[in-house]
């Protein structure tokens, strides 16, 4: 056997063992594609089934969602209608609130005016109470004076009655004397002439025109007791008129009356009446005169 044959045998053997090792290693480590294919196929089948199931579920959910959407759209429309109604109610309530605020402001204004009126009326009430107290004091004072006047009037009335009785007696005596005198003169063919008084008869009282409540006040300027004439310190410029009656007082005591006979711008002249008998109650200059007691 030649050397070359031997070398070739050895090389062939080595190469065969090497290649067989490679092939065995490759085959041993190669994947099982059939199992892999079957595994993938079953996975695909399962995936398709899952897809179909998911698709059915999705369609069901979609239908359900559409139904829910339709239902929710109806509810949304109802809620929108409700919102519109509520907006209308809000507008009405807002208007009522504004009206209530305006009424409140008006009532506050009225209340403020009412409080002012109450304060004013309270002040007027205080003033009226004060005036009432003053009037009561004045009435008490006037009542006292009227009682004094009534007592004086009673005394004067008694005097007047005595004088009337005396005058009646004198009149009867005068008539008797007149009759005797007429009989006496008739014998000589004469009659008695009508008696004319030399001076004005002083009357105990004379009715004067009622004085209006003009409340004129002044003083006696000049007093003439001999002629019963007095001059007042006020005249036509103060409102004094003819025949106006003034009352003369001194320290709240009645002295006499003065009836105006003549009026000048700054003074007046009058006739004194109701003179008192006592000397200290005779009128004198400086006594107060007024139309009202």
């Amino acid at each position: 056997m030649s050397t070359l044959t031997k070398v070739l045998i050895v090389l062939l053997t080595v190469a065969s063992i090497f290649l067989c090792g490679i092939v065995v290693t490759y085959v041993a480590s190669a994947e099982n594609y059939k199992d892999k294919w079957q595994t993938l196929q079953s996975s695909e089948r399962r995936a398709r089934q899952q897809k179909d199931q998911i698709t059915e579920e999705w369609n069901a959910e979609k239908a359900k969602m559409d139904e829910e959407r339709t239902k929710l759209n109806g509810e949304i429309a109802a809620l929108r209608d409700q919102i519109r109604g509520l907006n209308g109610q809000v507008a009405d309530i807002t208007r009522e609130r504004d009206d209530a605020r305006r009424r409140k402001e008006n009532y506050e204004t009225i209340l403020a005016d009412y409080n002012k009126t109450v304060e004013r009326n309270t002040q007027l009430q205080r003033d009226a109470q004060k005036a009432e107290a003053d009037l009561r004091a004045e009435r008490t004072k006037l009542t006292q004076r009227i009682e004094d006047y009534i007592r004086a009037l009673d005394v004067k009335s008694a005097i007047v009655m005595q004088l009337e009785a005396k005058l009646k007696g004198l009149t009867e005596e005068k008539a008797a004397l007149q009759g005797k005198m007429d009989e006496f003169l008739r014998q000589y063919g004469k009659v008695t002439a009508q008696a004319v008084p030399a001076i004005a008869i002083r009357e105990a009282a004379r009715v004067a025109p009622p004085a209006t409540d003009i409340d004129l006040k002044g003083l006696l300027a000049v007093v003439d007791l001999k002629n019963n004439i007095a001059e007042l310190s006020i005249g036509a410029a103060d409102g004094v008129e003819k025949n106006m009656r003034f009352h003369v007082t001194r320290d709240s005591k009645f002295i006499c009356d003065v009836v105006v006979l003549d009026v000048e711008p700054d003074k007046a002249l009058g006739w004194m009446e109701l003179l008192q008998d006592t000397a200290q109650d005779k009128p004198r200059a400086g006594d107060a005169v007024s139309t009202n007691l």
Partner: peptide
């Protein structure tokens, strides 16, 4: 010896072919 070596190579090839066929 070379015959044995050659036989060994043949056995290796047959074993590999059998293993591949089995697989």
């Amino acid at each position: 010896l070379y015959t044995v070596i050659l036989a060994l190579a043949l056995v290796a090839v047959l074993a590999a072919a059998g293993f591949v066929a089995y697989q």
